[in-house]
Every structure is written in structure tokens, then in C-alpha cells.
Write a protein that binds this DNA or RNA. Sequence first.
DNA 1: ATGTAC
Length: 478
Amino acid sequence: MNFNLEPCGKNRYRLSPYGDMQVEALVFLSPKLKAQFGESEALKQLADAASLPGVVSPVIGMPDIHTGFGLPIGGVMATDSKTGVVSAGAVGMDINCGVRLLRTNLEAKSLTTGKLEKLLAAIEKRVPSGVGKSSLYREFREADLEAVTHQGAAYFIRRGYGFPEDEASIEAGGALPGADLKAVSQQARERADQLATIGGGNHFIEIGEVEKVFLPEVASVMGLQEGQVTILIHTGSRGFGHQICTDYSARMAQAASKYGIRLPSKGLAAAPIDSPEGRQYLAAMACAANFAFANRQLITFLVREAFEEVLKLSLEEIGLELVYDVAHNIAKFEEHKGRTLLVHRKGATRALPAGHKENPARYLATGHPAIIPGSMGTASYVVIGTERIGETFNSVNHGAGRIMSRKKAKSSLSPEELQESLKGVLLRAKNLRSLLDEAPVAYKDIDEVVGTLVDAGLTKPVARLKPLAVIKGEGDEG
DNA sequence: ATGTAC
């Protein structure tokens, strides 16, 4: 199938009409990304999304777009809250996969390799990584699931697992409204024993350094400065959210015909927002989103504990304050041009513009940080949306974006090549072969991807972070 | 992403 992209502005393309598209689809690519872009399947997925009932123009492909289940990863789909649909596949399997950035008072040059190794070990001792791992601590494995899923990060912050001020630096305050555990299957509840674990795939905990500040005044509001040690935590709702997506995708596929919805693909199974299936999915999705906020909160608590133990300093001295925590797989009701829309972001990060009332008070004048993790061993970015960010429903990309499938990476790369590409970044992993699909060469160039939206006038980089040491969860050896 | 296959 040939999908044609017509240029329609700087780094901006419009997908030529295809099938039953009701609205436009836009894709943001730099000339270099355009030249290497071969993902016709991802474009078909955008066209499919643009054909769903109640979809609002335009459906958007971010510069990190690649084929996903239903909607591409790097996709934004907004639907009208009254006439539109909700799709579990357009949120993704890992509901509220997201990134949290912590700042410190430490200078990167004060951390020797030996100290970094001790820090990684102290974190690893507390936070399991890898597929299928459950929490090391009974109080987390057996936490009151209704309270966790309804209250999110605040449930644990109020019990001492965090600073009271953490809550204000989390998207949606760390708890999406409308969560209802009654909408969650027994099978999903049985997979809720993974709080305070990072999982596998692209998830990680990274100790890094602010390598470059681009906007000193904004960086200062965020407490960031060059040479400073930072922590990134990238994980989501683990098996719990995965099961909820699986359950509701199947239910929506089954229910679609009774609502007269023609499904363009199985992955885009959808139900009217105002239907039992739609409402229950959103209630269950909010449970998974809140579980993920709680997960990142508990990991934060354990990272703080690890730093105190290794550095033998107080948290007051170390810092480790939360800069921000932002989701990149989620659907939320948001106001755009006077309409209430359900904005599905799958591999896309919210970035509210300066002055938007949903920013936390401390970021009202700047816009909150949008955190964009690079692949293992490469830089990450903190960006803000510009006054034009409404053109993408206040959304930016979520990472570098895969350029090589997991399967291809596993078969064509060697552990030696992976080690070489890490360029001295400390990596805690027993088995490099299981991480080949996470090799930097399997991903697009993060500078190019971030630069695409910057040049399109939608974002501004605030700071670039470079990795010093990283914990990755292992997968299988494929 | 994922008890990586019901």
C-alpha cells in the first residue's frame, strides 16, 4: 500500500486521503527523518484512526512514530467527548507508561565510578527489574488496591513514601479522576503485585547529568543547572495495566457492531465514550494510570533511600526533589478551543503551554516540563510547549522512537556492538543479549527527533541530560 | 509493553 505524505509546513506533512478518513492526519518529520521513514503500516494506522466516529481533526503522528497495536506509537487521537469513541488500543498496553525526573544538589563530577556502582547496586537491591518481577516488599504487594487505584501517588505520599510537595509535581496531581476498581477484572487484580518494579523493554532507572541548559530561566524554575546529577525513572502500570488493555480491547471489539462502529483494525477496537464499555474502560484505565503514578512514587522513595544509604547524607543535603512526572500512554478529557475532547496519547507526552490553568502553580508561567527519554546510553531532553502547542492538542513526542523492530535488533546485533555503543555509560545488566532490542542503533537519533518539533515551532528544549549509569530490566533473549 | 502463546 502506498501512503503519500504532502508537505504542508516546516517538518510537517499531511497524509493523502485514504479509505474512510473523516479528518486530516498530520505527521511531523525532519528532512532526515522523512528520508529514513519507511513505516507505511504506521501511516495506515493513522488513517484508520482518522476514520473512527467522532474523531477530531487532525490525527497526529509525532517524529518518533512507529507501528504499534492499533494506533501507532507516537500517535495522538482526539475524539469528541459527546459523539466520539474511546479506544483501549489507542492508549496502549502499558497504561500510563511515563517518566519522572528528580533533581539533586549533587555535582556529577563528585560521583566516582565506584560511587555510581554502589548507587546502582543500592537501587537494584530495592527495585526489581525485568519482565514478570513483583515487589520485594509485602506492604506494596499487599497494599489496599482500591485505595491505591483511586488515590494514586497520594495514597503512598500520605503514608510517608514521599515528600508532601511531590504531589503537585505529578501530571493530574498523581491521580486521574473517575477511577473505579469495580471496572477491573479479577485477572487484572491478580497482576497488581508489581508496585515498585520497573519491568522490561524500554523501562529504566538512570542516574544522569544535566549536560546542557538551553533556557536558563526556565531551567532555573525547574531547579536544573549544568553539571548537576539527575535521576530519570521510566516505567508504567506493569502487568496490571496490560491486563486491563487486553480485557477492554476484547470487549470493545465484541461490542463495536451493536453501536454501528466499523472497526478499521482489531487494535483500534473502540466503544462510544458514553456507553457502558466506554465508561467502564475509562474507569479501569484511570485505575491503571493511578497504579502507575503510585509505582513511580514508590520507586522514587526507594531511590531516595538508596542515595541516603550510599552517600551517608540527609535528603535535605542530597535534594532528590521531584521536577515532574508525566505520562505518555494515556487518554484524558481536555478542553481545546471550547470543546471537551478525549485526547488519546500513545507514545506522546502532554506539554501544556505557559499560562494554561492546568499547569501546577510553580510551572504556570513557563509551562510544565515534558520529559523525553532517549534510548539506553543516549541523551534525554526536558522541553516545554510553545504558544503553538495547541496544534498537536498540547502534545509532544515521547522518546527517540524505534527504527528497528525488536526482532530485527535481536537477530542483527551482537552484545559486543551493544557494549561498544554505550560509550562508557555504566549499565547494570547480567545479560546484554537480552537487551539487544534496546540498543541505541535500534532507535532514531534523539537530537533529530526533538529538533523536529523545535524547528516546527511547537517546542523549546530546556535541558539535555546525559546518562552516567543505568538500570535496565532484562527481557528474553529472543 | 507483557506471567513475550489460549
